[in-house]
Nucleic acid binder design. Structure first.
Lengths: 173, 173
DNA sequence: CGAGGTCGGTTCGGTCGGTGAACCGTCTGC
DNA sequence: GCAGACGGTTCACCGACCGAACCGACCTCG
């Protein structure tokens, strides 16, 4: 789509938001960043999108201050969510919840736990055990009942994403 | 974009959601539906999108059971949010809030009030006056400090959307 | 009843973005 | 030093989007 390079004239916060994260693939890239994906190749193999598009999207997200390009190990760059990027979490969480509600007859694809006490989080991010709003960084993402088993031979990124792990932490490599 | 006709292989609730509402214009159409827009021509004039695209999007939303095509006055059809469509509100609200937080230096574009007591709603939809979660149908949408004044000569739909009114109710014509 | 206007929608040609595969230079690990 | 991994670019093809013109059904008014 030219999804959102601009929604000209739309004096609306939603239109402005979609100019940033409304293009094809963009929200999936951001979601993966929440789940710990950080390197170009990891995004490419997990999402299976054309590399030229990935280059374009990452640059746009850095430009918009949603991701930051930071030097990683061995001089390879990594992409890391900024504070602005992390603040997108409630919106992404809501969209996932809607998808689970409507298209996951066997239950949600993923669950979220409070890292400190293991309590399950509701869709607003409140812990069932301690009844407190949990920041994303203290959240563990884990496969839910609706997440089918991945194909026998899956790439290492998909495998790493399918086991419980702390959000925002780089995937083990 | 082929935005989301399919994100093949993505066993993820977010990808599934974006297949439905991730294409260019789709979420803006749904937002307008929340604000009371119901007729083909109203969507077309307010959004300024190609009519062929609007035809396509409305059909897809009806097919996905987000909108329902109902007979209106004088045999003209109207498009109305279904229960499934209404349940998209938290996600849309979150995306708008993010846009306001990051790109509205003078304050939010819109405010939401509890229709019964006039209390201001926070971004989770809780009323500051009575401290209860307010359903969308009991919400009034009103211009906020960040919403610039529309151009002198604005179309009637834009004008109607710029004054406080109950959500989900058809716009006065 | 006939003319003009409104409305919902389709058609069409031009343009733009996405797709997928091949290619390239740098860096890493052995 | 060499082979492979990695991040990124290039290119040709294709489908979606854009904008304007067109169309038929219905409404309104004289």
């Amino acid at each position: 789509m030219v999804l959102p390079r601009d929604y000209s004239g739309q004096a609306c916060a939603l239109a402005r938001t979609l100019e940033i994260v409304g293009e094809r693939w963009t929200l999936l890239i951001v979601r993966d960043a929440f789940f710990g994906v950080r390197r170009f190749g990891e995004f490419a193999t997990h999402l299976g999108l054309p590399r030229a598009v990935l280059t374009d999207r990452l640059a746009a997200l850095v430009e918009a201050d949603v991701l930051a390009k930071v030097p990683g190990t061995g001089r390879r760059a990594e992409y890391e969510l900024t504070e602005r990027g992390v603040s997108l979490w409630p919106a992404i969480r809501s969209l996932m919840a809607w998808g689970d509600d409507n298209y996951a007859p066997t239950g949600p694809h993923r669950e979220f736990w409070h890292a400190q006490d293991g309590g399950v989080l509701d869709r607003d991010g409140r812990c069932a055990a301690c009844d407190v709003l949990i920041p994303v960084a203290d959240t563990v993402v884990a496969p839910g009942p609706g997440l089918g088993t991945p194909p026998e031979v899956a790439d290492p990124v998909t495998v790493a994403l399918t086991r419980p792990h702390r959000m925002l932490r780089p995937l083990p490599r």
